[in-house]
Amino acid sequence: MATVLKVERRAVRPRSIRKQLRTEGRVPAVIYGNDIENTTISVSGYELSMSLREGGINGVYSLELDGKKIPTLIRDYQLDTFNRDWVHVEFLAVDMSVETEVEADIILVGTPAGVKAGGILTQNVHSVIVSATPDKLPDVVEVNVEGLAIGDSFTIADIPENPDYKIIAEDMGDQVAAVEEPEIPSEPEDEDAVAAEPEVIGEKEAE
């Protein structure tokens, strides 16, 4: 189910309008795509943050504008470097019956048997592109790694299929994670085993 966000049209000029909007707790934004002309809007920063907690970054957001509701995805956004406040958001209007592609994080679930035996779990790929209709797009792809022993690994192709979405990758053979042998610390040098340095005999003093 799409999360509804009430938005308002906004002026583009003067440039100071953006600063004024942020002072009022509103976020400058834009809607485009799916035969909708680029439309500059603003949205409540508080409502956007609360909706994001519920719907996730890949959730569907139904923007209520001029009495109409437009299904959208958050295509891009900017946050302030210091206080992490919203700076700008891009909403992509979508057709709910047409598949689209987004990036989803890969989350490893469980403790591998190999880690319990002393191995080290490493993760090399942290996200993948997934394709699905907007209402079925996941924020994360969870992979259970409990069965991995020391020396085991799995690739993108090994991620279990999900009926809701399809994983897309240029190389399905890319290694996602592996359980490696633990590093064996080097033995401390045994001082007793160190051979004594030969005595240096100087030249005999002249008589």
Rank of each mutant, 00 (worst) to 15 (best):
M1W: 03
M1Q: 10
T3P: 05
K6R: 14
V7R: 01
E8V: 06
E8H: 10
I17Y: 09
K19F: 15
E24Q: 06
R26M: 05
V27M: 00
Y32K: 07
D35V: 10
T40E: 11
I41Y: 04
Y46M: 15
E47H: 11
E47D: 07
R53H: 13
G55E: 06
I57Q: 15
I57V: 13
V60I: 11
L63N: 04
E64P: 11
G67V: 02
T72C: 01
L79R: 14
D80G: 04
T81V: 13
R84F: 06
E90F: 02
F91V: 02
L92M: 11
M96Y: 05
E101Y: 09
V102L: 03
E103H: 15
I106E: 03
V109G: 09
V109E: 11
G110K: 00
T111H: 01
K116V: 05
K116R: 06
Q123D: 07
Q123R: 08
V125Q: 02
I129V: 14
T133Y: 00
T133E: 07
D135I: 04
P138R: 06
D139C: 06
V140F: 08
E142N: 10
E142L: 05
V145N: 08
L148T: 08
L148M: 09
G151P: 09
S153V: 07
S153N: 11
S153M: 09
P160K: 01
N162K: 04
P163W: 08
A169W: 01
M172R: 09
M172Q: 12
G173I: 12
D174F: 10
V176N: 05
A177K: 07
A177P: 04
A178R: 05
V179R: 04
P182G: 02
I184F: 09
E187D: 13
E187H: 12
E189Q: 15
D190H: 12
D192E: 13
A193P: 07
A196L: 15
P198N: 11
E199P: 08
K204H: 15
